[in-house]
């Protein structure tokens, strides 16, 4: 009897590295996330070890690995690598079959990927050069407000009153915030305004027709962002389970498919 085979997906993002292990049926059996740090390969290994521990597996159980994300070419144990555009599509389609528009808000970039009924990509676009509207923007604002990033979602949820941040640029937005603070605007309103501004940047990328799904680290840590997007598009935006792991899951599913071909 041969030992059951498992497949690994590694998503080395600009801020976090994620690993997902799937079994031969595509079920996730282990996952791990760590800050990407400076040594991507090392971080990827560390994530793999944690995911193996969670799944109670040995390294030998993993028969194929696919990497994705900005650091995809730095993962020495990967058998293949594909872009995060591809892997996010695969990962999202796994949970939400059918044609959809996928919005991924990551640490340093945003992606809008349109998939057809079969999960094939129709087209995609990425944010312009500036990190405004990405996770990095939220982190910068948290820093300016002297808040822990983990406290942002609670604050945003606590109010319906959002200040309007109109600047494209992160630095200018921080200056705008200074002006709001001076006039005594509540911090919660500024945080909610920050989330609103992230969504505004996304809505500038694509009309977001049809079913919309939201993935990435930002919505994983700040579910309020999905509520705001739902309100703005006028229908419920779907969030797959573990939205931060969508790319890594997609990579693992690609590994599974390649391994079975």
């Amino acid at each position: 009897m041969t030992a059951p085979a498992y497949f690994c997906g590694v998503d080395v993002g600009a801020s976090a590295t994620k690993v997902v292990l799937v079994d031969a049926r595509g079920n996730a059996v282990g996952m791990a996330v760590n800050p990407s740090g400076v040594d991507y390969d090392q971080t990827a290994r560390q994530c793999l070890d944690q995911a193996l521990l969670e799944a109670d597996l040995q390294r030998e159980a993993v028969v194929r690995t696919v990497s994705t994300g900005y650091g995809r070419t730095n993962v020495s144990f990967a058998d293949d690598s594909l872009t995060e555009i591809h892997c996010h599509g695969v990962g999202c389609h796994h949970h939400i079959p059918g044609a959809l528009t996928l919005v991924d808000i990551g640490g340093q970039d945003n992606k809008v990927i349109r998939l057809d009924d079969h999960g094939r990509r129709v087209d995609f676009c990425m944010n312009r050069k500036c990190a405004a509207g990405t996770g990095a923007f939220i982190e910068e604002i948290a820093l300016r407000l002297d808040l822990d990033v983990g406290d942002m979602d609670g604050l945003a949820q606590s109010t319906d009153d959002a200040v309007r941040l109109s600047s494209f640029c992160t630095v200018f937005a921080k200056t705008e915030i200074l002006a709001h603070l001076r006039t005594g605007v509540a911090v919660a309103s500024i945080v909610r305004g920050t989330f609103e501004s992230v969504i505004t940047r996304v809505l500038e990328m694509d009309p977001l027709d049809g079913t919309v799904a939201l993935t990435g680290g930002v919505v994983a840590h700040n579910p309020t962002v999905a509520d705001i997007l739902s309100a703005r598009v006028g229908r419920t935006v779907e969030v797959p389970p573990h939205p931060q792991f969508t790319g890594a899951l997609g990579a693992a599913l690609v590994a599974l498919k390649q391994g079975s071909d």
């Binding site: 995060e84 591809h86 970039d109 990509r121 050069k129």
Partner: peptide, 20 residues
């Protein structure tokens, strides 16, 4: 005005799309 990583990812995604 040019981001190497973003550009490579986008070029690569275009080729992947054709393969797909």
């Amino acid at each position: 005005m040019y981001s190497e990583e973003q550009t490579r990812t986008q070029f690569e995604a275009l080729v992947e799309q054709l393969h797909e």
